[in-house]
Measured scan of single mutants.
Amino acid sequence: SDYEVNVNGIHHRFHNISEELIKFIEEALRRGEDLREIIKKVRELLG
């Protein structure tokens, strides 16, 4: 049904976003950045 496609589409989009965010955060932590600064950047990215 349309509803299922829609829900799956939304889930898929969020899954991709969270994968990208996790990579972004892991790389920043590897560079020794402060978690609070990383979260601030993530918030800015998400608008």
Rank of each mutant, 00 (worst) to 15 (best):
L46G: 09
R30G: 12
L29Q: 05
S1E: 10
H15R: 06
V42M: 05
R30S: 12
V5C: 02
V42T: 03
V7Y: 06
H12M: 05
I22V: 08
K40R: 13
V7H: 08
I17R: 00
R31F: 10
I17P: 03
L46M: 14
N16Q: 06
I22M: 06
I39N: 01
F24C: 06
S1A: 09
A28R: 09
L21K: 04
N6G: 02
L21F: 04
A28D: 07
K23T: 10
L35F: 06
R30W: 12
I25Q: 00
R13D: 14
I25D: 00
S1W: 14
I22A: 04
E37I: 11
E33A: 08
N8H: 07
G32E: 11
R30A: 08
H12W: 06
F24H: 08
I38N: 00
E27V: 09
G47W: 10
R43G: 15
E26W: 04
E26L: 06
G32T: 07
I22L: 03
K41E: 10
I25S: 00
V5S: 01
V42N: 01
E44V: 08
I38A: 03
R36Q: 15
E19S: 13
F14E: 01
I22Q: 04
A28G: 08
R30Q: 13
V7K: 05
N16T: 04
L21Y: 05
E19R: 11
G9K: 01
K23V: 13
V7T: 04
F14L: 01
N8M: 04
G32F: 08
K41A: 14
L46S: 11
I38K: 01
I38W: 02
E33L: 12
I22T: 03
L21D: 05
I38V: 12
L46E: 11
L45V: 11
I39S: 02
E44C: 07
R30E: 14
E26T: 09
I22C: 02
A28M: 14
L45F: 09
E33I: 12
D2Q: 04
E19W: 11
K23L: 13
E33Q: 09
E19A: 10
V42P: 00
I17S: 02
D34I: 06
H12S: 01
E37F: 10
V42Q: 00
S18G: 08
L29H: 04
G32W: 05
F24R: 05
N6M: 11
I38Y: 02
F14Y: 02
V42D: 00
D2S: 06
N6V: 14
H15A: 06
E19Y: 13
K41H: 10
K41N: 11
G9M: 02
I38D: 00
I25C: 02
G32C: 03
N16A: 06
V7M: 07
F14D: 00
E20T: 10
I39H: 02
D2W: 10
I10P: 01
K41I: 12
H12R: 01
S18M: 03
R31C: 05
I10Y: 07
L35I: 12
I17F: 02
K41F: 11
I39W: 02
K40M: 12
I25R: 00
E4L: 06
H11A: 15
E26F: 05
E19N: 11
V7W: 10
L45N: 08
G32K: 06
N16R: 04
R13Y: 15
I25P: 00
E26G: 07
E44T: 07
S18K: 05
K41S: 12
E37S: 12
R36A: 13
H15W: 04
N6F: 06
I25K: 00
E44A: 07
V5L: 06
K23C: 07
E19Q: 14
L29V: 13
I22F: 05
E27F: 10
L45K: 08
E33V: 13
N16F: 05
F14R: 00
E26Y: 06
H11Q: 12
G9V: 02
L45G: 06
E27R: 09
E37K: 07
N8A: 06
R36H: 12
E19L: 14
F24W: 12
V42W: 03
F24E: 08
E33N: 09
F14I: 00
V42H: 03
L46N: 09
K23E: 13
R30L: 12
I25W: 01
E33K: 08
G47Q: 11
F14N: 00
I38S: 01
K23H: 14
D34L: 09
I25F: 03
R31G: 09
H11Y: 15
K40F: 10
G47H: 13
H11G: 07
N6Y: 09
I17H: 01
G32S: 11
E44W: 08
V42L: 07
G47Y: 08
E44P: 06
I10H: 15
S18T: 11
I10R: 05
L35C: 03
E4Q: 05
E33H: 10
E33S: 10
I25H: 00
L29D: 03
D34K: 07
D2F: 07
V7C: 06
R30D: 12
E37T: 10
R13E: 15
E20H: 09
K23Q: 13
I17N: 00
R43E: 15
I25M: 03
E27K: 10
L21G: 10
R43M: 15
L35R: 02
E37Y: 07
R31Y: 10
I39P: 00
L21N: 06
L29K: 04
I10C: 07
E33F: 09
E33R: 08
E44N: 08
H12D: 05
H12A: 05
V5A: 03
K40I: 13
E19C: 03
E27A: 12
D2N: 05
S1H: 14
K40H: 11
G9W: 00
V5D: 02
I25Y: 01
L29E: 04
E33M: 11
E27I: 09
R36S: 12
D34Q: 09
S1K: 14
K40T: 13
I38L: 10
I38R: 01
F14K: 00
Y3C: 03
N6H: 10
G32L: 05
D2M: 03
L45D: 06
E33P: 03
E20R: 10
L35D: 02
I10D: 11
R31W: 09
V42C: 02
F14C: 02
E20V: 07
I10K: 08
H15T: 13
G9A: 02
G9S: 02
E44L: 07
V5P: 01
G9H: 03
R31H: 13
N8S: 05
L29I: 13
H11M: 14
L21T: 14
D2K: 02
K23F: 15
N8G: 11
N8E: 07
I25L: 04
E4N: 04
I17D: 00
G47S: 11
V42R: 00
E44G: 05
K41L: 13
I10V: 13
V7L: 07
E27L: 12
G32D: 10
E33G: 07
E26P: 00
N8Q: 08
L29M: 10
R31A: 14
I17T: 03
R31P: 01
D34S: 10
E20Y: 09
R30T: 13
R30C: 03
N16S: 07
I25V: 08
R36D: 14
G47R: 05
E20F: 09
I39R: 03
L29Y: 04
L46Y: 07
G32H: 13
L46H: 10
R30M: 13
F24Y: 14
S18L: 03
R13I: 15
R31L: 14
I17A: 08
I22G: 03
S1D: 05
K40N: 11
N8V: 03
V5E: 01
L29S: 04
F24V: 09
E20P: 08
R30K: 11
I25T: 01
R30N: 11
N16E: 04
R36E: 08
R30F: 14
D34T: 10
V7R: 04
L45I: 13
I17V: 15
E4A: 04
R43D: 15
G32Q: 10
I17C: 03
D2I: 07
N16H: 05
K23I: 12
N8D: 10
H12K: 02
L46F: 06
F14V: 00
V7F: 05
H15S: 11
R36L: 14
F24S: 06
Y3G: 01
I10L: 12
E33T: 09
E20M: 08
E26A: 07
R30P: 02
E44K: 08
R36W: 13
E27T: 11
H15E: 15
A28C: 04
I22D: 00
I38Q: 01
I10W: 07
E27D: 14
Y3I: 03
G9Y: 01
Y3Q: 01
H12Q: 03
L45H: 12
S1Q: 14
I25N: 00
R31K: 11
F24T: 07
G32A: 09
E44D: 10
S1V: 15
E19H: 13
L35E: 03
H12F: 07
S1M: 15
I10G: 05
K40Q: 12
R13Q: 15
I38H: 01
G32N: 11
G9T: 02
I39C: 02
H12Y: 12
R30Y: 14
I22P: 00
F24L: 11
N6Q: 10
E20A: 12
V7S: 07
G47F: 09
I17W: 00
A28Q: 15
E27N: 11
R13V: 15
L35M: 08
V7I: 10
N8C: 07
D2E: 06
S18W: 02
N16D: 08
E19P: 13
E33Y: 09
L29P: 00
H11R: 14
E20L: 07
I39T: 04
R36N: 14
D34H: 10
A28F: 08
I10N: 12
K41V: 12
G47K: 06
I39L: 04
I38C: 02
F14W: 15
V5Y: 02
D2A: 04
H15N: 12
E4C: 07
D34Y: 07
E4W: 04
L29C: 00
H15D: 14
D34N: 07
